[in-house]
Measured scan of single mutants.
Amino acid sequence: SEYETMLTEIMSMGYERERVVAALRASYNNPHRAVEYLLTGIPG
């Protein structure tokens, strides 16, 4: 799925699956924002 592709691409940058899933959830599946959250911390 498109979601799995995003997940895999972000994980390939060296992040753990659960952190990527949390970041995508926080960003409403916006991959650019999710990466930003992984770099700066997930808000909330």
Rank of each mutant, 00 (worst) to 15 (best):
V35P: 01
V21Y: 04
M6E: 02
Y37A: 05
V20Y: 04
I42M: 11
L24W: 02
V20E: 00
L7D: 00
A34H: 01
R17M: 08
H32I: 15
T5M: 14
V35F: 07
E16S: 14
T40V: 09
S27G: 07
L24Y: 02
E9S: 12
Y28V: 07
E36R: 08
E18K: 07
T8R: 15
E4W: 11
R25S: 08
M6F: 08
A26E: 07
R19P: 05
N29L: 08
R25Q: 10
A23K: 01
S27L: 04
Y37H: 05
V20D: 00
L38Q: 00
P43D: 10
A23W: 05
E2R: 11
V21K: 08
L24S: 00
E18N: 09
E18L: 07
N29W: 14
A26G: 04
N29P: 04
E4H: 09
P31I: 13
T8Q: 15
S1H: 11
P31H: 08
Y28Q: 15
L38G: 01
L38N: 00
V21Q: 07
Y15K: 01
P31T: 05
E9Y: 15
Y15Q: 01
T40P: 03
E18F: 08
E9C: 15
A23H: 01
M13N: 03
L39K: 14
P43E: 09
L24E: 00
A26M: 10
G41Q: 11
E16A: 10
R17T: 03
H32G: 11
A22K: 07
T40R: 12
R19G: 04
S12L: 12
M11P: 00
T5Q: 14
L7M: 06
E36S: 06
T8A: 15
E4P: 03
H32E: 15
A26K: 07
H32W: 12
L24H: 00
M13S: 03
A34Y: 02
H32S: 14
M11H: 02
T5N: 12
T40Y: 15
R19T: 10
M13D: 02
A26T: 05
P43N: 09
V35T: 05
Y15L: 02
N30Y: 03
A34E: 01
R17Q: 06
Y37E: 03
P43G: 09
P43W: 11
P43Y: 09
E36T: 07
G41R: 08
S27R: 02
T8P: 02
Y28P: 03
S1C: 15
I42S: 09
I42P: 08
A26I: 10
E4Q: 10
E4F: 10
N29M: 10
G41E: 10
M11E: 04
E9Q: 14
T8W: 14
T5P: 08
G14M: 03
S1N: 12
Y15E: 01
M13E: 02
L38S: 00
A23R: 01
A23I: 03
L38H: 01
Y3D: 04
T40M: 14
R25F: 08
Y28G: 15
G14L: 05
L24F: 03
V20N: 00
V20H: 01
A34I: 04
P43A: 10
N30W: 04
E9N: 12
V21T: 06
L38T: 01
R19S: 11
L7H: 01
Y15C: 01
N30I: 07
V20W: 03
A22Y: 05
G44K: 11
R33F: 08
L24I: 04
E18A: 10
Y37Q: 04
G41M: 11
R33D: 08
R19E: 13
E18G: 08
E36M: 11
G14S: 02
L24D: 00
T8G: 09
V35Q: 05
L24M: 08
E4D: 10
M11L: 06
M6A: 06
S27E: 03
T40G: 11
L39D: 06
R19I: 12
L39G: 05
M6Y: 08
Y3V: 05
E2F: 11
Y37N: 03
M6I: 10
P43H: 09
N30H: 05
E16V: 07
G44R: 09
T40Q: 13
S1E: 12
G44V: 13
E9M: 15
L38R: 00
Y3M: 05
A23P: 00
G41Y: 11
P43S: 09
Y3L: 06
T40W: 14
R25T: 08
L38E: 00
G41H: 11
L24R: 00
R33K: 15
V20K: 00
E4Y: 11
G44P: 14
H32Q: 15
E16C: 12
Y28L: 14
L39V: 10
N29I: 03
